[in-house]
Amino acid sequence: MEPGLYHLLFISAALFFIGVYGFLTRRNLIAMLMSIELILNSVNLNFIAFNKYVWADKLDGLFFTIFVIAIAAAEAAVAIAIIINLTKNFQSIDVEETEEMKY
């Protein structure tokens, strides 16, 4: 069976919710970061799918995907820098430990 738009959208939606679930439940900051990457990738998949099946003669979706990948890389760098600093201050990468930064 040839995979169609709906298959890809299904995978993308699954990926998105796995990411969201991971982000909300994991206490490990690295794991949360990975979840965000999942969410971003699900979005990328959506773009590609729509580009291929709906507007095959255009390149907008592709470009958006490339931009998202670039920004995701930058975002990962920033996030990891923050995580390193938190680790230095709290000797842990548990997100619950950072609670004292409230108000």
Binding site: L24, V95, T98, E99, M101, Y103
Partner: peptide, 9 residues
């Protein structure tokens, strides 16, 4: 503003 990142999410 509890400081819990996941709550915010």
């Amino acid at each position: 503003q509890s400081g819990k990142v996941q709550e915010y999410a």
